[in-house]
Simulated assay, not measured.
Amino acid sequence: MDRRNFIKAAGLASGAIFLSNRLSGTTLNPTENPHKPVLHNGVLNGVCDLHIHAAPDIKERTVNELELCRTAKETGYKAVMFKSNVWSCHDRAYIVRQALPGFACFGSLVMNLAFGERVNIHTAKQALNTSGNLCRCIWMPTQDASYPPLAEAGHTGKTILVADTAGKILPEVVQVMELCAEADIIFATGHSSPDESLAMARTAKEIGLKRFVITHANSRIWKLTHDQIRQAVDLGAWIEYCYLPRLWGPGTGLPNMERQTKEEFLSYIRLVPERSFVSTDLGSAGLPDPVTGMGMCIEEMASSDVPQQEIAMLVRKNPAWLLNLTE
């Protein structure tokens, strides 16, 4: 059996097991068969996942970037965008495209300490000038964000500010926003606080930044209230929801996280689907790989009576627009 048919057979078997567990009421262990993509008869066609972690990285990952793209292409994805909390990955996207002609692989840049102790304008400019123009998102600090609950959770050492003590967005952050607006790519809030994210949304509106994204608005300490999300949308923001919180928790590679209930996840995605999108934020060891996770996410939305039109907006249409894919 060749590799393509093997993956297809394994995926269909995995999908059958998943559906059987759903019908029987059995909870699927998120760590079960973590490397087998769940292929639901074309349900992944046209998907764009804008938040994927893959090797190479300083943390163990379930899959490397090239292999993830091979699987995504075989299962019908339209595009993926990688995120590294330490290094750039838009340059590697250029190489992946040489190996997989015709598949839309993109990278991004996260403003963490690897690029300096302040949001680095020079780094942003160089990312936008890299071969292929494949940096489609610049994220504000994540692991190194200056957000008090991060320190409470054990983060030590230097952090990077996005706002001053009065809550005003710093000039270098505004300049990176302007660069993203000029290049017509995504500017994302990273691990900024909800208040900082709303302040950046106001600034983004002032400078005319169209592809402004508030990152994983349903996750942990970065969680926005429903009212805050509506405020952000009124300011022109796009809202990212991640499926990762539905999968982590006891028995997984992230055992100390509290798993989000299905009801809470659904309450978020149903708020303003026309200005929202769903990413997996997967890639951590001990959890499903991103393609499997996306299949699980779509199946859960469909089985929870989320209209197919809204699912299409959340995982296909809206993320494709944010990547500036017009075809």
Rank of each mutant, 00 (worst) to 15 (best):
V278T: 04
V278L: 14
P171L: 05
L134D: 04
P148N: 05
A188Q: 03
L23W: 04
Q309W: 12
T31K: 15
G157R: 12
G190M: 05
E74C: 12
A72M: 12
R70N: 11
V80T: 03
D234P: 09
P34Y: 10
K317L: 14
E263Y: 08
G167R: 03
R220C: 14
P307L: 02
M1W: 09
R230T: 13
R211D: 02
S303K: 05
H35T: 14
L170D: 00
R246G: 02
T75C: 14
L109T: 09
N256F: 14
M294C: 04
F6K: 00
P101V: 04
T252S: 03
T252H: 01
T203A: 15
C48A: 14
A79R: 02
S88Y: 13
R92C: 06
R4V: 15
L68K: 01
L198M: 02
A204P: 04
P273K: 11
S197L: 09
L113I: 12
S279G: 12
V119T: 07
G208N: 05
L282W: 08
L287P: 04
I311L: 07
S276K: 01
A93F: 11
E264P: 02
I160E: 03
F212S: 00
P141M: 02
A104R: 13
A217S: 12
D305K: 15
A99K: 09
A285V: 11
H90E: 13
V272C: 13
G295Q: 05
E196K: 13
M257C: 06
P171T: 03
V38N: 07
S131P: 07
K317S: 03
A13R: 01
E74A: 15
P288F: 06
C69E: 09
L68C: 10
S84A: 12
R220T: 05
P171A: 12
L282F: 05
T189K: 07
K205E: 11
A55P: 01
E240M: 13
P149L: 03
D195L: 15
P148L: 06
T75V: 14
I214E: 00
T326S: 15
S24K: 04
I207Y: 00
E310N: 05
M81P: 00
A188D: 08
A237T: 08
H40W: 15
E67A: 13
L161C: 11
S193M: 12
Y241K: 09
Q308E: 11
L134E: 04
K223N: 12
K317Y: 00
G236Y: 08
Y268T: 02
L109H: 09
E196W: 05
T203M: 15
T215Y: 01
S20F: 08
G154D: 09
N85Q: 12
Q143T: 08
E32Q: 14
S279V: 11
Q126L: 14
G293L: 08
E178N: 05
L170Y: 00
